[in-house]
Amino acid sequence: MIAIECLTYNPYQENTYVLYNEQKDCIIVDPGMHNAHEEQHFQSYIKENGLNPVLLLNTHCHVDHVLGNKCVYDNFGLLAQFHEGEIPVLMEVQNYAPQMGFNYQAAPIAEQFLLDKDIIKFGDDTLEAILAPGHSPAHLCFYSAKHNFLIGGDVLFRNSIGRTDLPGGNHTQLLQSITERIYTLPEKTTVYPGHGPSTTIGFEKTSNPFIQG
């Protein structure tokens, strides 16, 4: 069993996900804590639930999804795992974060990176990395076929899709990613997006005004 907790942080209302199993090991995805109060809230959640963080994942490296990487590294010694194609995006965060009012501190970068179709082991369970660029150059989603969920980042939202007007964005590529990599998953798959409420593949294929199946 994998339980999923959504903690929403920073002015962009970014969804930080904590995935944990029966052994209380947990994966942190896209930590968005942007100040001391949010960092304390996050650490208290981990402590109060007796969780043991074992892995840090980034779907992509836009500022609102990586603000908490340094906090996770400092407190749990975890280096973020993401696609190497996101490095230029991450490097730019250092330049524009202060202009946006964020006190951003960069975390060390891991020497190994995730690739499309990589299998991430988590106790008795696994997650599959699915490359879905368009919102950012090398955006990954994390899929559990066993538990019917997708940690989708900023690719597909409830009745919406990720923006493509940021550097590295490509609208045509994003629609292709959704069509070929996301909508091909089972319709009962629950999508946990980087912002807003969860949805399902089946619901979006019939009701999303931007792209239907």
Rank of each mutant, 00 (worst) to 15 (best):
N95Q: 15
H135I: 11
T200D: 00
L127N: 03
Y96F: 14
G213H: 07
T189A: 05
K70Q: 00
F210S: 11
I120Y: 10
V54I: 12
L7R: 13
P137G: 11
F82K: 01
Q40D: 15
L57D: 10
L156V: 04
F142T: 09
S136G: 01
H60D: 07
T190M: 08
N35I: 11
V63K: 01
A132L: 01
V155P: 09
T200Q: 05
N49E: 05
K70W: 02
H41V: 14
E22V: 10
V66G: 05
H195N: 01
A36C: 07
Y45H: 12
P167H: 12
I130W: 07
V191C: 08
F157Y: 11
E14G: 09
A138W: 06
S44R: 05
G85D: 14
D124V: 00
R158H: 10
N103E: 14
Y9K: 14
A97R: 14
G153W: 01
K205L: 12
Q13T: 13
T189S: 02
L127G: 04
N15H: 00
G168S: 14
E84W: 06
G196T: 05
Y104M: 12
G123R: 00
T199V: 10
G68F: 10
I119G: 09
D118R: 08
A132S: 11
V191L: 13
Q23A: 15
Q13C: 08
V54N: 04
V72L: 03
F76V: 06
Y9R: 11
M33R: 07
Y20F: 13
F142P: 05
V66R: 06
C141K: 05
T184D: 04
A107Q: 06
N208T: 15
Y73W: 01
I87W: 08
F82I: 12
Y143S: 00
H135Q: 07
G101W: 00
N15Q: 02
F122V: 04
Y9C: 14
Y192D: 01
F210M: 10
G101H: 03
L185Y: 02
I201D: 15
K70D: 03
I4L: 15
V18Y: 01
T200R: 09
K70A: 02
A97Q: 11
K146W: 04
Y192R: 04
P197L: 06
G50V: 03
F149A: 02
I201G: 05
N52D: 00
T179D: 12
L166G: 08
F210I: 08
S144K: 03
N159S: 09
H171D: 09
N208C: 13
E128A: 13
D165M: 06
P133T: 02
F82N: 04
R181Q: 14
H135P: 06
V72R: 00
N15D: 02
P186I: 07
N69W: 00
N49W: 07
L114K: 12
T172V: 10
